[in-house]
Amino acid sequence: MPRKRRLPDVVTIKMPVLTQPRDVFEVVFESEEARKMAEEIVEYIKKNGRMGWDEYKELFPPEKHYLYFRVIKRLEALGFISRGAYHTYILSKKFSDRMEYLGKLWLFKMGKVEEIW
């Protein structure tokens, strides 16, 4: 019986402080190869509406499958994608909701409550 996939409780991302990031995946993934793979996954889901659990075999060569699982796990943990029906992946806006909430917390901390609502 297959074991249940576990997502990490915490995912660390490095925020650049001297320059603005050009791409969101630049902040999330450290390697260029993982960034490109994440971009391909998101483009595939945008084009087809969803990505099946075994469609990675058609997209990526067998030697890249280990990286695929790392990338997909991180994308799902951060909220860029989520599970749809029948173990498919769909795009999610959970990440942007979390960042919006974090921004509101910071405005509250600064005392600019009128800008929150």
Rank of each mutant, 00 (worst) to 15 (best):
Y101T: 10
L102H: 10
E43R: 15
E43Y: 11
I90Y: 12
M110W: 12
K36G: 15
G103A: 07
M15S: 11
H65L: 05
Y68S: 04
L18E: 10
A38H: 09
M99W: 02
W53R: 15
E33A: 14
K4N: 14
G111L: 04
K94D: 13
K14V: 13
T12D: 15
P62G: 06
I72Y: 00
A77L: 08
V11N: 01
F80K: 04
R3I: 10
E40I: 12
R70H: 12
K57V: 06
F80A: 01
D54K: 13
L102E: 11
V11E: 00
D9V: 00
K94T: 10
G52P: 06
K94L: 11
E30N: 12
G111W: 02
A34Y: 02
E114T: 10
A85G: 07
L7K: 05
S92T: 02
P2K: 13
S92M: 03
K112Y: 15
M99L: 14
K64L: 14
E76V: 07
Y66A: 12
R22I: 05
T88A: 09
V17H: 05
V17A: 09
E58L: 10
E33T: 13
P62Q: 02
T19F: 12
I90N: 11
G103L: 04
M15G: 07
E100R: 08
K36N: 13
V42S: 05
V28D: 00
I72M: 07
T12V: 14
T88W: 02
F29W: 02
L59D: 06
M37F: 12
Y68I: 00
K73G: 00
T88F: 04
R6D: 04
E30I: 09
R6S: 09
E33P: 06
T19S: 11
W53T: 14
M110G: 08
G49V: 01
L78W: 03
G103P: 01
V42L: 07
P8D: 01
S96R: 09
V28T: 03
L7A: 04
K46D: 11
V10H: 04
L102M: 13
L102A: 15
W106N: 03
I116S: 13
E76M: 08
M15I: 15
